[in-house]
Every structure is written in C-alpha cells, then in structure tokens.
C-alpha cells in the first residue's frame, strides 16, 4: 500500500459518499445515470467474487463491502424509493448496456491471464469499469443540467483513476516483477475517457461558471 493507492481509494470512496449524500439530502437523483450505477454494480460483483475465496487484508475486505453496499443502495433508491425514483431522468438515460457489456465480455474471454471463471469475470470487470462512466457522461451532455455535486462526483471518480496510474508507476518502480498490462491499459483508457470532462470542469471552476458540456 502506497500513498497514491490510498489516496486513490479514498477519492473513490469520497465520490460515492458525495453521490449518496446528494441523493439523500435533495431526495433527488436528477442528472444521475442509473445505467452507470448498475454497470458499477456488475463491475463490483464480478471483481469481488474473491471476497469468499481470497482474503487479502481487512482493509480490502471492508472497502469491497462498502463499494458493493453503497452502489446497491443508490440503485435501490433510484429504482424503488417512492420519492427519489420519480426524479430519475428515465427518458434521457437511454444508453444501451449491451453496447458496453458484450464487447467487454468478448474481450475478457480472449484477453485474460488465465482461462478460469473467476479470472475471466475479474478481467471482464476491469474492462467494464473502464467504460462504465459513459452513460453518465452522455446523460450529462443531454440534460445539460449539471449540479455541483454531480460534477464533483464525476471529477472525484476521474481523480481516483489518475491516482491509480501514479500508484502503478510507483509500484512498477519499487516492486520487482510488478506487471499487469491488462489492468494498466484499461486504466489508461478509463482515465482518457475523463479528459474531456476534466477540461470543462476545470474551465467552469476557473471562470466561476456553472458547469455545462457542449452538445
């Protein structure tokens, strides 16, 4: 565990807390993509199957449970909470899951480090995480109504990815034989996905304007 990894995980955790607080405090999930949240739920379930088979540390176990629990809480609120679900932008959040899930699944069947159920699902989760934010970004662009908290949520998620890249560089330099090419490439792709958003986020912050993405 190095500082970049810890900061990355904490930023990831903070992003989810921001989203939970926003939805809970405003009783509204306007601007939040249920598709992205459900893709993250798939990512976490597929990746954390090893909760039952492979104990790494108490820290890892606790964080995994928090990520799973918080994501399912958000999905539950957006689908079933009698006040919150009414505020969901159902008609705008139309990105199709299969466009992301099927290519990632096929890729994980071809490109993996071991052809076992656990390993293929783990690899699938790595690929899917790289693109899971896309429905959220599309929704933002469509509604063009980005409140600060939703903007901060996405900014924190992007920051978490950038910190993970620093973590990999640090580990590569300090741990002998540390290599994980599939994770690195997916992680870099995932971070690139945020660059456009970062540009507009920082620009709006510098100009003290409300964040909006060009159509």
């Amino acid at each position: 565990m190095n500082l970049f990894r810890l900061l990355g995980d904490m930023t990831h955790l903070l992003s989810i807390i921001v989203l939970l607080l926003k939805i809970n405090a405003t009783r509204s999930c306007r601007g939040v993509s249920l598709k992205t949240q459900e893709l993250y739920a798939i990512v976490f379930v597929c990746r954390y199957l090893d909760l039952f088979t492979n104990f790494i540390s108490l820290y890892n176990t606790v964080m995994k449970v928090i990520f799973l629990g918080s994501t399912f809480t958000i999905i539950y609120w957006m689908r079933f909470h009698k006040v919150i679900r009414v505020t969901y932008d159902r008609d705008q959040d139309t990105f199709r899951y299969q466009f992301l899930i099927i290519p990632c699944l096929l890729l994980s069947l071809i490109l993996n480090s071991e052809f076992t159920v656990m390993e293929v699902l783990w690899t699938f989760s790595i690929y899917l995480e790289a693109v899971a934010i896309l429905p959220q970004l599309v929704l933002l662009q469509r509604t063009n109504n980005i409140d600060n908290l939703t903007g901060n949520y996405i900014f924190l998620l992007g920051s978490y990815r950038a910190l993970y890249i620093l973590n990999w560089i640090y580990r590569f330099l300090t741990e002998p034989n540390y290599r994980q090419y599939l994770v690195w490439i997916s992680g870099i792709v995932q971070t690139i996905v945020y660059i456009d958003f970062f540009y507009y986020y920082i620009r709006s912050w510098k100009n003290n304007e409300k964040l909006s993405l060009p159509a």
Partner: peptide, 10 residues
C-alpha cells in the same frame, strides 16, 4: 504471470 498482482487492488 500477473495473476497475483492487481488482485490486491480495488
């Protein structure tokens, strides 16, 4: 072999 690495990350 990179199986052991990465699985210790979240």
């Amino acid at each position: 072999e990179d199986v052991d690495f990465g699985h210790d990350e979240l």
